[in-house]
Computed example of a mutant assay.
Amino acid sequence: MHAPRATSNPFVGLHHADTPLLLPNAWDHASALAMAGQGFRAIGTTSLAVAAAVGLPDGASATRDETLRLALLLGSQQFLLSVDAENGFSEDPDEVAEFARQLAAVGAVGINLEDGMGAVDRHAAKIAAVKSAVPGLFVNARTDTYWLGEHDETETLSRLDVYQQAGADGVFVPGLASAREIGALVARLDVPLNILYSPVGPAVPHLADLGVSRISFGSFLYRRSLGAALEAVVEIREGRRPGGRAPTYEDIQSLGADPARHD
């Protein structure tokens, strides 16, 4: 197991536990509190859902304000918050660092930064700038070599080496699903590895055995929720009773209440 870097951030310790950190990704206040209510100590955000909810494209640096607004809503809650910030919403490392400062100021303890297969040195500069500006913020450095690229193991490791050296606290390779490749990567890394959960990929116990430190749900829960809603409207339209479980009105209403009232 990788030794954690010295920090007062409790989020760091969750990456160095005996079992992987399962990080569900929320898209609004209600989804975050509902997931936290299931016992998850940390919650992430998902950029796709945040963008889709307001009619904007994902991965286009279009949702900076919406992302910060959601962090403001969630950063003071009783769970640890990590924010998906796409590429930092800028190619200027100083602007990315300023955004990271704003996230930390409202209570976020982690940030996810993706390279989008852009220049390695530019992404490394963003990571270094964030760590310089907010040393205690957990920087999860994502490479898209499997998400957008050619599944090149050599390039993946090369990029992650640079990101580690720039100060990344963890690294993320969405789309990587081969048990052999995951195990090989864990053995070569000096920081925790984050894998994106896939219903057709290795199950959580298998990922744990491979040494994965963090398993993110990404946009899966949002897409699953939307899928369930579509199934329900079709069933109702066809005169059938919709299946599945739906929270009550009171359940949802309680998610907007002051958390202190439920202590």
Results as ranks from 00 to 15, higher is better:
L176R: 01
L70D: 03
A53Y: 03
K126A: 14
E231I: 13
V171C: 12
P57S: 13
V173P: 00
Q38E: 02
D121L: 15
V54F: 04
R214I: 01
A52M: 12
E114H: 09
S178Q: 11
S216N: 08
A30D: 05
L113R: 02
A246M: 10
S47V: 10
A203R: 09
L113Y: 01
T154M: 15
A42V: 12
L48F: 12
A17K: 07
V139Y: 01
T248G: 12
P205D: 12
S47W: 03
G256T: 07
A260C: 08
V200N: 12
R224M: 13
V191R: 01
G256E: 06
V212Q: 01
L70Q: 05
A30K: 04
T45Q: 03
R240C: 13
S90T: 12
G243Y: 01
G44L: 06
A26G: 06
N112L: 09
D28H: 07
L68S: 02
E86I: 11
D190T: 14
E150Q: 13
A6R: 13
H2A: 12
L210F: 05
A246P: 00
A100R: 05
V12P: 01
G218A: 09
S31P: 04
D92L: 05
D28Q: 09
Y249F: 15
P93Q: 08
L210V: 04
G55T: 11
P24N: 00
S178C: 13
V109A: 09
V54R: 07
L21M: 13
T143W: 05
A168S: 11
L210Y: 01
N140V: 06
G149P: 06
G37N: 04
A203C: 11
V191F: 02
V50T: 07
K131V: 15
A166M: 02
G183F: 14
E91H: 08
P192G: 11
R224V: 13
R241N: 00
D58T: 08
R241P: 00
L189G: 06
A124D: 05
T45N: 02
G110D: 05
P192M: 09
A105E: 09
A51T: 07
Q77M: 14
G211V: 10
Q38F: 01
F99S: 05
P93A: 11
